[in-house]
């Protein structure tokens, strides 16, 4: 039982990382109807930026904050410079543009920092202690990641719900024409949306580097797939769904990995441990075939 709880906590921690990236995907999709395939690579790039700031001598949390600001600015700039020229193009064209961005960021990270594996010592976000609650051993880092994620998600929710800027963002996403009539600069709102998504992705990237070292250009590729699974699980337009989906997926995958051996002993034909990615896919596929709009999505009915 203790072991189960431990694995659940670890699962929640990796799930939080997926949830953050999934939230970024949902944010951009809600605002612009576009799936940003480059989200993972942008997150990876932000993690490298953080690493570089640490190399130049700044303490971890200063670098963290700095990276958030830089990522926000970067996301904003990307929307204004790269996405705006194609905003009236067919959706598939826009998706391929994001694929192009994926290639650019991947290449840029390799070019600037080479493919060497690096880690984030000596600064780490959280101390590597563990503590013991009644027999359950919990890692401070896992708790820290979960806590920061909860804070961020709550903060984002409060921003959208209670501030004027958040309201403007929501309006721009839902009713761009009406928003323009009211004086909202829709273009810049979309940019802010991209900026926020980039910042969320940056957190996901930095935590991935901390929780799943080493830091390398391919580190976010699997995370992106899991984030897609999480976003789709919740229904691609639901932020709550993305968070719940991410956490659930994290726990599910971790438990599968932990108990794969036991499953095999019970006669299960395949060794699931190395197959986390296909398992995640099967998970999405089964879910989608059963409920195409995701758990939290609304079934869209089209009017004739």
């Amino acid at each position: 039982m203790a072991e189960l709880l431990q694995q659940v906590v670890i699962g929640l921690s990796s799930g939080a990382i997926y949830a953050l990236l999934a939230l970024a995907l949902v944010l951009i999709h809600r605002a612009t109807g576009v799936v940003n395939f480059a989200q993972g690579e942008m997150a990876m790039f932000s993690a490298y930026v953080a690493w570089q700031l640490v190399q130049w001598g700044s303490p971890y949390w200063v670098a963290f904050g700095g990276t958030l600001v830089l990522s926000f600015a970067g996301g904003l700039l990307l929307q204004r410079v790269v996405m705006r020229p194609v905003e009236n193009a067919p959706v598939l064209t826009i998706v391929i543009v994001t694929l192009g961005l994926l290639l650019v960021f991947n290449g840029l990270a390799t070019w600037l920092w080479s493919g060497e594996v690096r880690t984030f010592p000596p600064n780490r976000p959280f101390p590597t202690r563990t503590f013991d609650i009644g027999g359950v051993v919990i890692n401070v880092q896992d708790l820290g990641i979960i806590a920061v994620t909860v804070l961020l998600v709550a903060g984002l929710w409060a921003f959208f719900r209670f501030t004027k800027a958040g309201l403007a963002l929501r309006a721009a996403a839902l009713y761009p024409e009406s928003s323009r009539l009211v004086g909202i600069r829709v273009g810049w709102m979309l940019g802010v949306g991209w900026g926020l998504a980039a910042a969320l992705g940056a957190v996901s990237g930095m935590f991935t580097a901390a929780a799943f070292p080493p830091l390398e250009p391919t580190m976010m590729q699997a995370v992106l797939i899991y984030a897609f699974a999480a976003a789709v699980f919740g229904g691609i337009d639901s932020p709550l769904g993305a968070v719940v989906g991410g956490l659930t997926l994290g726990v599910f995958l971790n438990l599968v990995g932990t108990y794969a051996d036991d499953l095999q002993d019970l006669g299960f034909p395949v060794d699931l441990e190395g197959l986390r990615l296909p398992v995640a896919f099967v998970f999405i596929l089964v879910l989608l075939v059963a409920r195409p709009q995701g758990l939290f999505g609304r079934a869209s009915a089209r009017r004739v």
């Binding site: 543009v97 694929l99 650019v104 390799t110 070019w111 600037l112 080479s114 493919g115």
Partner: peptide, 18 residues
Amino acid sequence: SPGMPSVIYGVVLILVLF
């Protein structure tokens, strides 16, 4: 240098789509 081919591919792709 490594990485550059990816960058060039991506940039060309985006420009062509523009």
